[in-house]
């Protein structure tokens, strides 16, 4: 019985220790970002591997999600005779929620896990150690550019997801199911508010980008430097990112769209 409490206490304490390490890590990254700015080459390379390589999966997923929304939305709304508001339904769902959240989840799965694996492997093959011994701060040179790239890419990817999704909804709703094209767009334009919907969606995706990049890089940096350790760290990135995204989404939605 005592063992159980001991184990529990130990895991709680080590979780707190990990949280502390990750906060310290974040501060080091933020300090290091300033050194990335005068060296755009490092940033472009990371933007390529984080953003450009995620482009395809985001666009395809966005399109399919938009199409499904168009399809399902049409059937639900036609019960109320409100097919014309399909545009509103698709756009609102995407811009406010699905765009930032699903894009962030996909990002965590594709780019986040890649970042964790890369950093973890660098740790395991002593590349990070080697850089330190050459008096090069690995946080400034390796970690900070990746963080900045993730932070910049996320809102762009979420915007792409939402936009392509809206077009996907149009293809299905207007093209296949006969909703009026003019009604699709005009209802959408008059209902969705720039400040409340678009800006809030963008803010969400910026927050998600920050969190996912932080988690992915920290798990890699903190990983046990063996192949098993790296694989566990990669899994943790995806799982913890998912929890963080969904949890923050609730909080942000409540703050932005609710009356709390």
């Amino acid at each position: 019985m005592i063992d159980f409490f001991q184990t529990l206490g130990h895991s709680v304490l080590s979780s707190f220790a990990k949280l502390g390490r990750s906060c310290f890590f974040l501060l080091q990254i933020l300090a290091g970002i300033l050194t990335v700015i005068p060296r755009p080459r490092l940033l472009t390379k990371q933007l390529y591997s984080v953003g450009v390589l995620s482009f395809l999966i985001i666009c395809i997923s966005g399109f399919f999600v938009g199409m499904v929304l168009g399809l399902q939305g049409f059937y639900i709304l036609s019960d109320f005779g409100a097919e014309e508001t399909l545009g509103v339904m698709v756009a609102a769902s995407l811009v406010r929620e699905l765009g930032p959240v699903v894009a962030a989840l996909l990002f965590a799965g594709r780019a986040g896990s890649a970042l964790t694996a890369e950093i973890g492997l660098m740790k395991a093959t002593e590349q990070l150690s080697g850089m330190e011994m050459m008096a090069i701060d690995p946080i400034k040179r390796i970690i900070a550019p990746r963080f900045l790239a993730g932070f910049i890419s996320m809102p762009l990817l979420a915007a792409l997801f939402s936009s392509i999704g809206v077009i996907g909804g149009q293809v299905v709703g207007v093209g296949l199911l006969g909703v009026d094209d003019g009604a699709y767009w005009s209802q959408m334009q008059s209902t969705l508010d720039f400040q409340e919907d678009i800006i809030n969606g963008v803010i969400k995706s910026i927050v998600f980008g920050f969190i996912v990049s932080w988690i992915a890089l920290f798990e890699g940096y903190d990983a046990v430097p063996t192949s098993e350790g790296v694989s566990r760290a990669t899994t943790r990135t995806v799982v913890n990112s998912a929890f963080a995204i969904l949890g923050l989404d609730f909080i942000l939605t409540a703050l932005m769209f609710g009356d709390i």
Binding site: G51, V52, L156, L160, S163, Q189, I198
Partner: peptide, 18 residues
Amino acid sequence: FVACGITALFFMAMQISN
């Protein structure tokens, strides 16, 4: 990539909202 992303943001602002 960045250009596409910014275009998407503009698209959202202009075509989707008011």
